[in-house]
Every structure is written in structure tokens, then in C-alpha cells.
Design a protein around this nucleic acid. Structure first.
Lengths: 217, 217
DNA sequence: TAGATGCCGAACCGTACGGTACGGTACCGA
DNA sequence: TCGGTACCGTACCGTACGGTTCGGCATCTA
């Protein structure tokens, strides 16, 4: 019944049966291990012990399969609910540092790197529907969460800025710098770059110097 | 005589005949237009009015061709010499803004995007020699130039920092933020994001608040 | 027990591409 | 004038992959 295949449809109702989930997880493994070229229909069928016929029935064609992999992975991330309680200055700063550290951990994860590489590789042609999908499903939610976090800080007087989007972009830049690009190019992190907690602390420190108030301590 | 093909050798002596340069420029066009998949040996031979036999003689195999494209493009960038004259505070700040603007312009250029996409696509497998090459040939020189610029600022008392590399990374983060990634994913810049001069000014402004001295005005 | 459904596995087809071989041509030095 | 070199254009080969088809099996339902 899923049929799917059309990306627009998949972005709305994305329910996969357990069996399909297993296959998609397997596809993700292949993708992580060897990039897009390593994800062939025959290879996936062999690795997942399923038939190519089922792949085409479920996902339509190869592009549909790729889109399904992305939405499948995105469906596994849950965004924590917004909070209304007033955190202390220290607690709030901790929240920022945790967010920063999480961001670094996520971006440096194998799965994230593989999917970003996939979307970027497709971005050259065909108006880049996969890139859109990845932005929509993954990046947007993270950004929204970060932005909400900053707005919480402003509401309680710890931060001062006019445009939350702009402030968040600066925060992002301070945290990520060129680390994401270097990882995508295949570089391995070493030394201080690999210590995400320290990097997160320093990024928050700088961010406070730009947007912190006296109340923020 | 070129023969090449082995990437290691190419990264040392990269002299291309004019004819080879024409062909590589043509390859670059194909790459920009349609991504890696659009750069086929037959297609390049047709577009460049040369024979496949020549391609294989000159570049060894397709990977050698890709590497040659990267080194060819990198050979066209010239890094301005280091200066010893003391610039005024205003002039130095201008230099930083110009650097920032140039960085944004370069990163958003079609050629840069195409080559980065290419290297990232290859980064999944084979220890990513192309990614290394791109970092070595392109990124490194830009970084060195930026870092030298910051050290100039420190020498003349406009900036204060311990680690120049670290300071430069922060500068980079403030300038680029997530713009590069969004471009690579196929997004088009609009509104304020597309005004590189304003973005550059704001980035330098923030950077001065983090690393500027009283002398820097 | 009989038909239907869903799926596996394997064989198959068409095409596109990397890489090679070869005939033909223009130029260059002896 | 002649051999050599470099190159173009094309035809060719092998393979890998996307996509289709089909036979067979297992499970479910009447």
C-alpha cells in the first residue's frame, strides 16, 4: 500500500512498516560505509535479504529509495518540547553549552555526514529535491530548537538581540566554524577539535560576550 | 611527458600545456553545469574537441582527470604577498572586511561549489584523496592568508589573541556561518544573505568585539 | 484443500560509461 | 620526400547498474 516514490507525497505521510524500516536501516548502513555509489539496488537487496522487486514496489525507484532513507532517519529524531519554567543563569548557560555540544556531536556523526554528502552530491542537478528534503527534515528542526532556546534566554533577560534568526546564525558559526566542512571533506578531527565539550564552552563564552547581558553573569 | 595520473605526483609538479588547460577548463564547465555525473570521458572529449585517447594519455584515468581539474583550478588563484607596512586602524579594518567579503564571494562561486561538491562526494570512500587535495590546494592557502592578516593586526596592536589559528577559525565562523552548507545543498541566497558587503561588515564588527583592542577604534 | 497474496531469489534486458584500439590527418625535423 | 609524433574521431569491449519479469515458497482465508 505505501507505493510512495513521489517525494512530495513522502514528505507528508511517512509511515514505514517494520520490514521496510529494517531495509532502510540497512540502506543507511551501506550509505554510511561507502557513500551513494555503494547503495545499489542489487547490493541493498542482497544485504537486507529482500528482493529488488520489493524495493521497487515499496519505494518506486532509486530516487524514492534515497528520499525514504532521509525521511526514515529524520523520523528518528525527536525535538524536546519548549519549556516555560525560568532557568537560573547557570542552568541556562548549561543548556546553551549542551545544545552546542549536541550540535557538534550530531554534525560529526557518521549518519549525518553520509546523508549530507548524499544531498550535496545530488544538489548539482534536478533542482535538488533531496537537498530540500534534508534541510526541511533535519536542519530546520535543529535550527528551530536552537532559535527557541535563544529566545528563551532573551525572555528571561540573559541575552539581548533584535533578530533571533540572526543571533542563532552567529551562534551556529561560533560553534561549528569550518568543522563541518572539514569533516565532509574526509578530514579526521584530532586534538582540541575533537573535544566537543571544550569547544562548546568556548563558543558559548564568545556568544555571551556578543549577546550576553549583565544578568547572565 | 605529463603522463601524471598518480595524484601524489600531480600535487608536486602541476604544469599543463595550453591545450590541456583548455580541456580542463572545459571539464570545469561540465562539472559546474551538471556535477560529477555530467563529467564523462566521452562527453568531455566531445565538448573539448579532443579524443578520449588523449585524455587517458594526459591524465591516466578518470580519477587523474578529476585531480587535474582541481589542481588546474587551484593554479589560477594567486595569494597576495605579505605586507610589512603599518596600516592605519581604518585601513586595517577595511582589509578585514575585504577579506571577509572575498571569502563569501569565493565560497558562493559556481566553480568553488562544484569542486567542493565533487570532493565531498568522493570523501566517503578511498581515504578521500580528492578532499585532501582540495584542502591542500585551495582551503589551506586561503586560511594562511587570513591567518597572516590577523597576525598583522596583532603585530600592530589592533587585535589581541593567543592562538592565531583559533582566532582565524572564529573569524571564519562569524563570516561564513551556515551559508556555505546551504549553498552546497542547493539553496539560493536571498535578502540580507546575498549582500556580502553588509555581511562582511557585521562579521568584522563582531570579531572586533571579541578580539579587538582599544587601539583598533 | 484451493485460491490469493506477499515476498524471495535469480535470471534477464537495455543502457551508460570507463577504458582500449585503430584508421586517418596535420605538423615537424632530417 | 619521408619517417615520426601527436592528435582527432569513431568504433569497439567489458562491466556495472537500474529496472522488469518470472518461478517458487510460505502464509492466510474460505
Amino acid at each position: 500500500m505505501p507505493q510512495a516514490g513521489r517525494i512530495a507525497e513522502q514528505s507528508e505521510s511517512a509511515a514505514f512498516t517494520p520490514r521496510q524500516g529494517d531495509v532502510l536501516a540497512c540502506a543507511l548502513d551501506l550509505l554510511v560505509a561507502g557513500g551513494e555509489k555503494a547503495l545499489t539496488t542489487a547490493g541493498l537487496a542482497r544485504a537486507a535479504n529482500c528482493s529488488k522487486e520489493s524495493l521497487y514496489k515499496w519505494f518506486g525507484d532509486r530516487d524514492g529509495l534515497l528520499a525514504a532513507v532521509i525521511t526514515f532517519q529524520a523520523s528518528k529524531v525527536r525535538t524536546p518540547g519548549n519549556d516555560t519554567q525560568a532557568p537560573s543563569a547557570e542552568a541556562y548557560r548549561d543548556r546553551l553549552e549542551t545544545f552546542a555540544q549536541n550540535l557538534l556531536e550530531v554534525l560529526s556523526g557518521d549518519v549525518s555526514l553520509a546523508l549530507n554528502r548524499l544531498a550535496i552530491g545530488q544538489a548539482s542537478r534536478t533542482e535538488a529535491p533531496l537537498g530540500r528534503l534534508l534541510i526541511e527534515r533535519g536542519k530546520r528542526t535543529v535550527n528551530a530548537r536552537g532559535q527557541a532556546l535563544l529566545e528563551t534566554g532573551r525572555r528571561f533577560g540573559y541575552l539581548a538581540f533584535d533578530d533571533a534568526t540572526d543571533a542563532y546564525r552567529t551562534f551556529y558559526g561560533l560553534i561549528v566554524r569550518d568543522v563541518h566542512l572539514r569533516l565532509m571533506l574526509g578530514e579526521r578531527l584530532d586534538g582540541a577539535d575533537a573535544e566537543f565539550d571544550a569547544q562548546a564552552r568556548q563558543a558559548v563564552e564568545k556568544f555571551y560576550r556578543l549577546f550576553g547581558t549583565t544578568r547572565s553573569g
